[in-house]
Amino acid sequence: MDVLKQVFLGDFMPHGMCYMWKPGLLWLHVSSDSLIFLAYTSIPITLLYILKRRQDLFFSKIMALFVAFVLLCGFTHAIAIWNVWNGAYWFSGAVKSITALVSVATAIALYKLIPALDAIPTVHDLQHQIALRNNKEKELQTQQQLLERYSTELIRSNQELTQFAYVASHDLKSPLRGIRQLNTFIKEDLENAQIDLPESVQQHMKLVDTRINRMNKLLDDLLEYSRVDNIENDIEESIEIVDCNHLTQDLFELVNSKPNFKLSLSDPLPTVLTLKTPLTTVFRNLFDNAIKHHDKDQGVIDVKVEEQDNYYLFTVSDDGPGVAPDYHEKILALFKTLKPRDQVEGSGMGLAMIKKIITRFGGNININSDLGKGMSFSFQWPKETLVRQVFSLNTTQ
């Protein structure tokens, strides 16, 4: 008890005696120290409130030191008021010594922050950065408008090209039928007149038939290619359950023109809920391509599948002559073939049509082949959920 009295009361004369207990002078110091104490107390409370709300502030540690420093400074003024009527100078000195230590620590910490403070952008720097950002945003907006314009033009051009392909393939059918009929009339007239044509002329007549059939096939494929983008409007009526085992077997039997060819299913294929027509087109053209370009009268076409997150990865392989890697991209292009048209019948559109369909449904197609090592086509086909998403996206464009 005596120790506490010694610390807080002390044996020294109170500070008021130095003021000679003059009321004006005494209350001048007391009121000033009171206001300083209240101000110094409110400052750290405000800083603590800011630190609590913004714990991400870079200067949170230095602010904590400022809180301690200002609070201790306020206590020194509160003790000064106490010592007006008491002589607790040991206690006052102890608080001042603690305040001195905190003050020195704060000064050192603040000195170490000089590089970080120098790195803080000035108002001019911020205004310059904002101006640059606004200019970039204007440039991006301009580029976005150009892209939207180009996109609109591209969509319009694609629609016009698709319409042109449809009209051309449809309207050219009529004169082609006329040419075919005229060629038939010529052969019938020659037969009725019992005229024996030279072998070369007969070959030319057969060549005309072959070219007519090729042109007809080209127009059919062109028409089908132009219809790839015309997906049905009602997904609920178009989507259906497809057993890929039955689908591939039926298509193979349909396109197989060589009795010694066989279809092999490495594993049972899945039953999927999808749009049947485009999937049928893909398998039919892959089978037709494998059989048509095979260098032997017998061969095997193998179909297997691997399930992925949102896709089925189908692989159609054959044991044919294969294609060198340099030509893999070429054979997927429109109207491209690696053999003369008189050697292998085809329009050069089958693989291009496959690529367009698969790309339309958000998938990829890859070729794995080399000369003399057969050929494998791997393509992704979307599962039901993704089919609906792609369908919805396509119909809104």
Rank of each mutant, 00 (worst) to 15 (best):
Q141S: 05
K217A: 15
D118Y: 07
H204Q: 09
K173L: 01
T122N: 08
E148M: 15
I195Y: 13
S200V: 10
F252Y: 01
A68K: 01
T277C: 00
Y166E: 13
E237Q: 06
L269T: 00
W381V: 08
V201I: 15
W27I: 00
T277Y: 03
D297N: 07
L57E: 08
E237C: 00
V123R: 11
I98L: 08
W82Y: 10
I301C: 00
S97A: 15
T142R: 05
G320F: 03
E224N: 12
L48T: 14
L28V: 00
M1H: 12
Y311R: 05
H328G: 02
S60V: 06
H293F: 04
L251H: 01
D56N: 13
Q397D: 06
F59G: 02
N364R: 14
L28H: 02
Y89V: 14
I331D: 02
T184M: 12
Q143E: 07
L140Q: 04
T99K: 12
Q181I: 10
V104A: 06
G16H: 03
E236Y: 03
A109V: 09
T106R: 02
T396Y: 05
K258Q: 04
D288I: 03
I36M: 11
D319Y: 02
C73R: 03
Q249H: 05
I98Y: 03
M20K: 09
L207S: 12
S60Y: 08
A168K: 06
R341E: 15
L223W: 12
S97C: 14
L393G: 03
E232Y: 03
G363R: 04
L351H: 07
L207K: 10
F59H: 02
I357A: 05
V305K: 05
S103P: 02
E139S: 02
I357R: 04
V300Q: 01
L101M: 08
N230H: 04
N230E: 05
H124M: 09
K258L: 06
L334F: 13
D229R: 01
Y327T: 04
Y311I: 07
T396I: 14
G74M: 09
L386Q: 13
L132N: 07
D234V: 06
L26W: 00
I179Y: 08
